[in-house]
Design a binder for these strands. Structure first.
Lengths: 335, 335
DNA sequence: CAGAGGAGTCGAAGCGCTTCGACAAGGCGG
DNA sequence: CCGCCTTGTCGAAGCGCTTCGACTCCTCTG
């Protein structure tokens, strides 16, 4: 193992000089710098992470906590996680992966031991048990999601209410007067994550303004559940011509069932999805959709977090503006 | 911040005693132990990770490297990652998430700096660029997958060849004489990950023994790609009555297209999938499938890795035995 | 031409923990 | 009843790095 001291000796300078070359915290003459850097390369020196963390009380590690709810849509989480890791690296940080298994106290452990400098929380509930612990710790934190009480945290999320109203506007603009919303699985609502409700609220209130009737049905992402939900919807509201789907697992079942039912998309029925772009593109029909910008959320979260670590950012609620892209699954309401 | 010394003082013992209570590496009388543990709780002491790593040259961190190929099936990766993290915690380890973005040298950085004690590599290619670096580092490593050259590593993977032959046996046993295999996307084969080829090989050789003809078609997981592949298959081999699908994104398109084509599953066509259990269960038809045991793979990988860290395990190739579960998508060949 | 101040470097003091050797106190066999 | 081993505890020496103050040259400025 090569140490700082070895490099210093090899370059004929003191250890502190090498350290300053590495950190750039003091001016070092160009010659010395070159010499030191050459020695570093020559010896294949890599600073010891533990020693660094101990001396500087900074680990350059961000903890990413993602509880694993099987009912939660996994690809979005994964995309965010990957993007967080990639982004963090660009700032010189690594990412520690925390699952929900350990419970809220994982936050305390990781932050209290100095293992992580800061925390990103995913899948945040309205009244999340991890938040008090995090607040107490005083460490920088960013939430992906929007809890009831945001003081002390920066929150990054899609403006789901806005997404809902965009869907309402789109369908209303195409002449639809009765629409149904296929929501997330009931378990998601029970868990009180907030985003599902916000979407419905946004959809509802804009629809009301535009004179459109809305029927909302939470639904699991299986064929069976979808079939039953669809049956109920058409029984209760035979005039429904537009669908908004938030549960991405339900998208294919819905399309498939409509097809079986001999209802053409978009001629008879228009479908708008709230989902990641990939899902909108890869199905049997290219879906008109409001994209869930996973990468963008991750990028914002990391950038904010780094800024907070460096003491140059305040708490803030960042709601990303949703965009609706019209594709092949929506069209004018039938006459 | 509470330190070991604070605890020692509070308990009226020396720092080393506290350390030994924590690590259990020397015998400590029950009374002292109680007293120390009480002080720890009282003060809310958490050992500093950096100091610990520095002094013991063990970070208790495992690096999990998962390159992000968009063509790779994401949920399996995610399931493995989560299971790795959860399992590692049970052994007192945390997991550092590495993406492919940084390139193979990420391995060197993380291991050379002492940030991670060991490494788990996912999505291993036959001739993976990360392997030489890892070998050189001398750190314990487990690969999830099977490269061409395994010396120096423990490898954990599903016996995909066995999975292939199970599929052949199942379909042959039901009387099918001509089967088609829908493989992974062409990009997967080009990347030389090995598992896709092994499945085909296993399927082919067992099929030959059983007198079954096999047609193999790599296929992307989109409707369009599937439609075209299916057209070609039935043109080339009109007598095909059995399908083996390895690309899980292709499963729903296949079923949907067969339905459209008025070919009933399982009456006219039998379908066997190689996929995680969840995928087999949640579609429009409950699929006969060979499960990809993501969690089990993760568990084995972590257990082996920990054993290697503690110096009590050798390199080994662990191929998990595949199991075929018969469900609603396969039945006797039509007469 | 003296003094101020900047640039470049060094030495040393930790950071909080682990671990090794030492040592005191008691239990045992011979 | 002495020496020996075991058990329980302590002190001190690091682990490899960061960082603060101090010091030495220079280069300006008045």
């Amino acid at each position: 193992m090569v140490t700082l001291a070895d490099v210093a000796q090899h370059a004929g300078v003191s250890a502190s000089t090498v350290s300053y070359v590495l950190s750039g915290k003091r001016t070092i003459s160009e010659v010395t710098k070159q010499r030191v850097e050459h020695s570093i390369r020559e010896l294949g020196y890599l600073p010891n992470a533990g020693a660094r963390a101990l001396a500087s009380s900074r680990s350059n590690i961000i903890a990413l906590m993602m509880p694993l709810r099987t009912d939660m849509y996994v690809p979005v989480m994964m995309e965010i996680a990957i993007a967080v890791a990639t982004n963090a690296r660009e700032h010189g940080f690594d990412v520690l992966m925390l699952t929900g298994e350990e419970g809220p106290s994982a936050v305390r452990r990781v932050v209290g031991s100095g293992l992580a400098d800061a925390v990103i929380l995913m899948d945040v509930e309205l009244d999340d048990a991890r938040l008090p612990l995090l607040r107490e710790s005083g460490r920088p934190a960013v939430l992906i999601g929007l809890p009831a009480q945001t003081t002390g945290f920066t929150c990054v999320d899609l403006d789901f209410a806005g997404a809902g109203s965009l869907c309402a506007e789109h369908l209303a603009g195409l002449g639809h007067r009765e629409i149904a919303m296929i929501g997330e699985a009931p378990a998601v609502y029970e868990r009180k994550t907030g985003f599902a409700e916000r979407t419905v609220d946004g959809l509802r209130s804009r629809a009301r303004e535009l004179g459109v009737r809305v029927l909302h049905r939470p639904c699991e992402g299986t064929y069976a559940a979808m079939a039953s939900a669809l049956g109920q919807i058409f029984t209760e509201r035979p005039g429904v011509t537009g669908f908004v789907v938030q549960n991405e697992q339900a998208v294919e079942p819905l399309l498939s069932l409509l097809r079986q039912d001999r209802r053409a998309v978009p001629e008879d029925i228009s479908v708008v999805a709230v989902c990641p772009e990939q899902v909108a593109l890869q199905g049997s029909v290219r879906l008109t959709s409001v994209t869930i910008p996973a990468r963008e959320m991750a990028r914002r979260a990391v950038d904010h977090l780094i800024a907070k670590i460096e003491g140059k950012a305040d708490d803030e609620v960042v709601l990303l503006q949703p965009e609706l892209v019209t594709r092949a699954s929506s069209g004018p309401a039938p006459v």
